[in-house]
Deep mutational scan, measured.
Amino acid sequence: QTVHVKGVQYHFPNPEEAVKFALKVAKDLGGRVEFHGDEIHVE
């Protein structure tokens, strides 16, 4: 599972961890989380 944050990719073997990370980052940055297939983008 890959999380993209402002052009940087973070790889997580566990999808659940990836989602938790993405939600935390989005909250910290005041952004939103978008799901694109296997990828999660924080915009």
Results as ranks from 00 to 15, higher is better:
His36Val: 13
Asp38Val: 09
Leu23Cys: 12
Glu34Tyr: 15
Lys20Glu: 11
Pro13Met: 13
Phe12Glu: 00
His11Asp: 06
Glu34Ser: 13
Asp38Trp: 09
Gly37Tyr: 06
Ala22Lys: 00
Asn14Pro: 00
Val19Leu: 15
Glu43Pro: 04
Gly37Pro: 04
Gly30Lys: 08
Glu39Thr: 10
Leu23Tyr: 14
His4Phe: 15
Gly31Val: 06
Gly31Gln: 04
Arg32Ala: 06
Asn14Met: 04
Tyr10Ala: 00
Val19Ile: 15
Phe21Met: 03
Asp28Gln: 14
Phe35Val: 08
Glu39Met: 09
Val42Phe: 03
Gln9Ala: 13
Phe12Ser: 00
Phe35Ser: 04
Glu17Ser: 09
Glu34Phe: 15
Glu39Phe: 08
Gln9Trp: 12
Lys20Asn: 08
Gln1Arg: 15
Phe21Arg: 01
Gly7Tyr: 04
Lys27Gly: 09
Ala18Phe: 02
Glu16Trp: 12
His11Lys: 09
Glu43Arg: 14
Val5Lys: 01
Leu23Val: 10
His36Pro: 03
Gly7Gln: 05
Val8Pro: 00
Pro13Thr: 13
Lys20Asp: 07
Glu17Pro: 02
Lys6Phe: 15
His4Asn: 10
Ala26Cys: 07
Glu39Cys: 11
Phe35Leu: 08
Val42Met: 02
Ala22Arg: 00
Asp38Cys: 15
His11Glu: 06
Leu23Glu: 12
His11Trp: 15
His41Pro: 00
His4Trp: 15
Glu17Cys: 09
Lys6Cys: 15
Asp38Ala: 11
His41Asp: 03
Phe12Asn: 00
Leu23Arg: 10
Val19Ala: 07
Leu23His: 11
Gln9Glu: 10
Gln9Asn: 07
Tyr10Phe: 10
Val19Lys: 10
Gln1Val: 15
Lys20His: 07
Tyr10Pro: 00
Val33Gly: 01
Tyr10Asn: 02
Val3Thr: 00
Phe21Gly: 01
Ala26Thr: 03
Gly7Glu: 04
Gly37Trp: 05
Lys20Trp: 09
Ile40Gly: 01
Glu34Lys: 12
Ala26Phe: 03
Gly31Pro: 01
Ala22Met: 03
Lys27Tyr: 11
Val5Asn: 02
Ala22Tyr: 03
Asp38Phe: 10
Lys27His: 12
Pro13Tyr: 09
Phe12Cys: 06
Lys20Arg: 12
Gly37Gln: 07
Glu39Pro: 02
Glu39Lys: 07
Ala26Met: 05
Glu34Trp: 14
Gly31Leu: 13
Val25Met: 14
Glu17Ile: 07
Glu39Trp: 07
Glu34Ala: 12
Phe12Lys: 01
Val8Lys: 12
Leu23Trp: 12
Phe12Met: 03
His41Cys: 08
Glu17Gly: 04
Arg32Gln: 07
His36Ser: 07
Pro13Ile: 12
Pro15Glu: 10
His11Arg: 09
Leu29Arg: 05
Asp28Ala: 14
Pro15Trp: 15
Gly30His: 09
Val3Leu: 02
Lys24Gly: 08
Val5Leu: 08
Val25Cys: 12
Lys6Arg: 12
Val8Phe: 10
